[in-house]
Design a binder for these strands. Structure first.
Lengths: 197, 197, 197, 197
DNA sequence: CATGAATGAGAGTTCATTCAT
DNA sequence: GATGAATGAACTCTCATTCAT
């Protein structure tokens, strides 16, 4: 595949991403994507075999682009508590974002492929585990420099991740308010950050 | 609709329930249900206008049948801690049940109807809020008789529910192990139940 | 068929008539009539084999009930011109009646059965010929007592009937105004009635 | 839609036209047209959304193809009376044509859409008014050069059109004979054309 | 006579996928 | 590579008609 083809593929993935954000995963047809991309029906099939493959490409792009809040804007001296705060702020933003949100589509895709080990391991699990690891490391660090209480870092990290996952899915089903997010996040911080005296 | 019809409607809902457990919500067609019920195409339409209506009937049935763990097997003298344990055990059972599981279908249905206030309020929100209320009342009681630490009961209840929600959705996407459930639930108990001395 | 059955059949025909006025002929299903009559599906089939038979019964009823403007309110001394005027007035009323109008349904029924000699002869042709005959007789009479010009009565009658037929169908397709009807009828009268001097 | 598609669309319209002539409007299904055209089910939907759209295309084609008897075969010196005769002859041919006749289908279509202003104005009304205008202009001309009696041209034209409309619909319901047409047309001519002396 | 649940044929419509150009 | 017309399978939904009660 030449240079040009790579660009076109990239273009399709980016355009399809918007469609998935709008309509979820299962509601999107090849026709929808063809129309959004303004390319030919046959043309799309030259690059992708179906919506599943396209959505996987979207997920791959997402995970590559993902800004790592833990590495950005962070210098040696940044306090661990501040990094945690930034992480939570970022999560809050995502939780409350109504549009430009790939959450529903992703869940639908994961459900559809829950028996496909490759997909399951590569996307939802990987995402969850990586975040958990990073968070655990952060907590560890916070504990070491006395910012955080002594806890089981791994355990705590996973707990936070499940909590966020629960809020994320709830935001797509029953809806959640900013107040609810704030309360939950305050609870996390309160259980973690040692009060300065 | 006569006596007989009510029975048949009930039969359809029960049969459809199995189909939804097997295939999720969006993958199920009227044809699937017709075949599962072994009735005629037109016959099904006498009772339901489409899969959405059938699924709603399934949800309604579910919520009516739902065994209330808080009220069963509970006498005046049962310790609050034990009731909590029973609740968590029940949740664990549901979280780990691979088959006979309406979770995926429910999420798909909620996603599909997330902009439909009636559905959103009547099912996912109601379910969440009722469970939260009951749990909060339980925590309150545990606090009063000294079994539980002093916490913000409402807050704690919601936190637990989001956690369970997170685990529930994770069980359908990346999968979770019994060990993970045990750890999380242990964490909950540890944060709540005052150790006897 | 007993007394009671005759009444029920009559009731069905009358009710169906309203449905046909509302929806035309081809758009009406057995279901529509069952619902309008509030009887059982099977019950309707005891009396009629299908919509065609019902509509024929409606037509039969119509032709029996039809008030004969030529015989009502007419005494020996009534002027022929006045009878003509009454006839035209009656036609005008029918032409302009938007609702309670069986015209469209009738045409649809006639079209459907245009190759059925029995239907064709019994309804549209009979209706047309009877009206033509009566009109011709009237014109004849008018000519004899000097109220009307000398014309070919048969010819003139048929001409008038075709004209009315044209306006009738036009009223159901492109629509016609009261003014148009008045002009056409004035033209008829002017060609027929000798001016008194 | 490319060159090729335009041809195919044209082909569909022409083929469908025959089907409508055969079966009327309401009796024709997409399947009928698919089979007549010998194309695939889905293929037809690439060009038309339903029978209504196809029939409208047929009507459009008809009105574009319509040979204008007033402009053909007419030189400066042709007598107005002769043009009128040609017009009536043309009408007669149409009235008596049993097959290849779109009349029934058109009426059915107009009935179905009688509340749709766009359709009503664009087809039955336009057709009627245009014909009336042309006829009125012809009569006017005939009056000016002394071929016709002095009459209200507009009035007369409309009268003739309603008469023809009445015969047209009658030909589809009760049926009409050549003799009847001749008599009516003779009557028209007699009322219009001044006898040469 | 009367009921109304049940049937199954058939219409409408949409989509993934192919293939000649 | 790219196009977009074409296909046909699959689904939704509605009705006329039957039949056990």
């Amino acid at each position: 595949m030449g240079e040009k083809s790579v660009q076109k593929k990239q273009y399709i993935v980016e355009t399809a991403r918007k469609v998935f954000m709008e309509k979820g995963y299962k509601n999107v047809t090849m026709k929808d994507i063809v129309e959004a991309c303004d390319i030919s029906r046959g043309g799309l099939y030259l690059y992708f075999e179906g919506t599943a493959e396209i959505f996987e490409a979207v997920l791959k792009m997402e995970s590559e682009e993902k800004d790592d809040v833990f590495s950005e804007n962070v210098t040696e001296e940044t306090m661990v508590t501040d990094i945690l705060m930034m992480f939570l702020k970022e999560q809050k933003k995502e939780l409350l974002r109504r549009k430009n949100n790939l959450t529903t589509a992703s869940y639908e895709f994961y459900f559809e492929n829950s028996k496909n080990r490759k997909i399951r391991d590569e996307y939802p699990r990987k995402r969850f585990e990586q975040a958990t690891e990073t968070l655990a490391a952060l907590i560890e660090e916070g504990m070491q420099n006395g910012e955080f209480y002594e806890v089981d870092a791994q355990m705590m990290a996973r707990n936070i991740m499940f909590l966020i996952e629960g809020m994320k899915v709830s935001s797509q089903t029953m809806g959640i308010t900013e107040e609810m997010v704030d309360q939950e996040f305050a609870y996390i911080v309160q259980n973690l950050v040692a009060e300065e005296e």
